[in-house]
Design a protein around this nucleic acid. Structure first.
Lengths: 144, 144
DNA sequence: CTGTGTGCAAACACTTTGCAGGTGT
DNA sequence: ACACCTGCAAAGTGTTTGCACACAG
């Protein structure tokens, strides 16, 4: 229940409840994307499954976290960085999502900017979503 | 039940059944990705929901079709082109998937090659998945 | 004839909704 | 005090599995 967490909730105009503090704490402690199931495992029997669903939805709505897509269509969530915030409600995620095929973790690679794609005549781009799969840095180390 | 469909099934070493022929026919007639639900709607009451699930899975396994991801995590399927085929079982999809925000259709833009991304030190790329959302060529026409 | 595909029923997993009571501000 | 959160129960939706029968090769 650090002060940082409480103030972050306040910043996003959310009421401070135990559930929100704990979930937010989990996100802050990990630096990879979490699925609903991951969170449920972390806080077993403390909060209801339904509450977690609703909390995640609220966080997404308020711009605290954003959805991260899996290669199989599974949905995960990751913390938004400050630059995600835009004037209106549309997030601005120009970073890639990397899923490690060894450890299975999905992370946001903020440093990597999605390159420009040239679409055929008549097509108009609004949003992009790039998922890269491979081996992450820490898993590569362990092999060598 | 064209000959082309029958021969395509044979090529992929699949038994020729009514269900497979019809589903394959649907894929050949449309040039956009189809969700399980879409197929179910097309062939109402002809085949069981379960059979469609199994047929789609078989098609993916045999390399006839590949999964296409939605922005919300929904799974669709699209025909593989010849170049998708690789020696082993891993598909080779270096094209982008475009989802039109107006008509809602998702298509494979074979012409657009995914640009190279430079990953941070230690990261190794194996596969990529790029989804672009915007307005497709035919929807853009209708506006003007 | 043999192995595979299909239909049906049921199980399973995931997510949403309604409502009563509790809690933050 | 009021609006909002939470937990529980239940419904809704999507997908998988087991089994008996049918069918392609």
């Amino acid at each position: 229940m650090s002060v940082a967490i409480k103030s972050k909730l306040k910043t996003y105009k959310l009421r401070q409840t135990d559930c929100r503090e704990e979930i937010l704490e989990i996100f802050l402690s990990k630096n990879h994307a979490l699925a609903h199931a991951d969170i449920e495992t972390q806080i077993v029997d403390k909060f209801d499954r339904v509450t977690i669903y609703r909390t995640l939805k609220t966080f997404v709505d308020k711009g605290l976290i954003h959805k991260v897509l899996d290669d199989e269509g599974g949905i995960k969530y990751a913390l938004c960085k400050e630059k995600c915030q835009s004037h209106d409600h549309t997030h601005n995620h120009d970073h890639i999502h990397f899923k490690c095929m060894t450890c299975g973790l999905t992370t946001c690679l903020e440093a990597v900017v999605i390159p420009t794609v040239i679409l055929p005549e008549g097509y108009q781009k609004k949003e992009m979503n790039l998922l890269v799969q491979g081996i992450c840095a820490s898993c590569n180390k362990e092999v060598s």
